[in-house]
Amino acid sequence: MFDAGGVLTRPIGGRWNPRYDFEDIVMSHHPQVRQGLFPRAIEAGQDFLDAATATANRTDYHRTVLATLGVERPSEQLLRQLEAPAAGPVIELYPDVRRVLSQLQLRGIRMSVVSDNWVGLEATFADLDIQNYFEGFAISEALGCRKPDPRMYAEGSRLLGLEPHECLFIDDDPQLVDAAQELGYQGITLDREAQRTTTSVIVSLDDLLPIIEAWRTTGTSG
């Protein structure tokens, strides 16, 4: 069971929300907006996302950011453009992803995605040509909750037809890994900035392969 952002994918342009072309789109509609307001507006948007108990509505998120920029009544055209597919890719895979997913698939490991994300992630993964590695997607907007809500993890294991103790959950947030372990799942934190791999933290997805082989040998994990 994989988290998506920070584990499998990273944002082009270095930030998740708003996407990289946000400033250009807003300025094309409202050239009077002061550039210096964008950092504060992006922070307000993040506060809005963090306060939500489920993945927030995308339009409400954009309205919050735009209001901080002084755009109190954004046009429907502006909102549609912000939510329409970008002209180019928005996210990309980490270099180790396709290699490791292929190796896991060859080993018969069944995989799902458990992500705090908007509906549409599955289509994005199809564009990245990795959708077919996964049995299904547990997406917070669709489920109406976010990790560490137990329903997120339960949907990820349901998609695999496995019990919690048979599943390994990988996330870049150690608190969300801890929550999974409290529910009976195996858990590993992926920290790409860590100095070395330990029993609870890996620095690359490549480190999963020997761990899973060891667990399968001892019967610890499914």
Rank of each mutant, 00 (worst) to 15 (best):
Phe137Arg: 02
Leu101Tyr: 07
Glu122Gly: 03
Met111Tyr: 07
Leu49Arg: 15
Leu162Pro: 00
Leu104Cys: 08
Arg110Gly: 07
Glu72Lys: 13
Ala51Phe: 01
Arg110Tyr: 01
Asp3Ser: 13
Phe137Val: 06
Asp206Glu: 15
Leu106Tyr: 01
Asp21Asn: 12
Val65Tyr: 06
Ile211Leu: 15
Gln35His: 12
Leu106Ile: 01
Ala214His: 12
Tyr133Ser: 09
Leu49Gly: 00
Ala180Lys: 08
Thr9His: 00
Glu193Gln: 15
Phe125Cys: 09
Gly108Lys: 05
Glu141His: 07
Ala52His: 08
Cys145Phe: 01
Arg73Ser: 14
Gly120Asn: 10
Ala194Leu: 11
Gln131Lys: 15
Glu166Asp: 14
Leu168Trp: 05
Leu8Trp: 06
Asp206Ser: 09
Val203Cys: 13
Gln35Cys: 00
Met152Gly: 05
Arg151Ile: 04
Gly13Phe: 07
Gln77Cys: 01
Thr198Gly: 03
Thr59Phe: 02
Ala180Asp: 07
Pro174Trp: 11
Arg196Gly: 04
Val71Ala: 07
Gln35Gly: 00
Glu23Gln: 13
Phe2Thr: 09
Gln32His: 10
Ala52Met: 04
Gly161Ala: 09
Asp173Cys: 03
Gly45Pro: 10
Pro210Phe: 10
Pro148Glu: 11
Glu43Ser: 10
Gly88Gln: 13
Gln186Pro: 00
Leu160Met: 06
Thr64Gln: 13
Tyr153Cys: 05
Arg99Asn: 12
Leu104Ile: 08
Met27Glu: 10
Ser102Asn: 14
Gly219Glu: 05
Phe38Leu: 09
Tyr133Val: 03
Leu106Asp: 12
Leu162Asn: 03
Ser102Glu: 15
Pro174Lys: 08
Leu106Lys: 15
Arg34Cys: 06
Val203Gly: 11
Gln103Ser: 12
Pro31Leu: 06
Asp206His: 12
Ile109Pro: 05
Glu163Met: 08
Leu121Lys: 09
Arg40Ser: 14
Asp127Glu: 15
Ile202Met: 06
Pro164Ala: 12
Tyr20Thr: 05
Asp50Arg: 15
Thr189Gly: 04
Gly6Cys: 07
Ser157Met: 07
Ala138Trp: 04
Gln103Cys: 02
Gln77Ile: 11
Asn132Thr: 14
Tyr61Cys: 04
Leu79Val: 04
Phe137Ser: 07
Val7Gln: 09
Ser112Ala: 14
Phe2Gln: 09
Ile130Lys: 12
Arg98Tyr: 05
Cys145Leu: 12
Gln105Ser: 14
Pro11Val: 10
Ala179Trp: 11
Val113Leu: 11
Asn17Lys: 08
Phe137Gln: 04
Gln46Glu: 08
Ala194Asn: 06
Ile109Leu: 13
Tyr94His: 12
Lys147Arg: 13
Val114His: 02
Asp207Gln: 10
Leu121His: 04
Leu93Ile: 03
Val71His: 08
Thr217Ala: 14
Arg19Phe: 06
Thr124Ser: 12
Gly144Ala: 10
Ala84Thr: 06
Arg80His: 12
Thr124Asp: 14
Ala44Thr: 06
Ala142Trp: 01
Tyr61Gln: 04
Leu162Ala: 15
Phe38Asp: 06
Tyr61Pro: 02
Val33Tyr: 10
Ile170His: 03
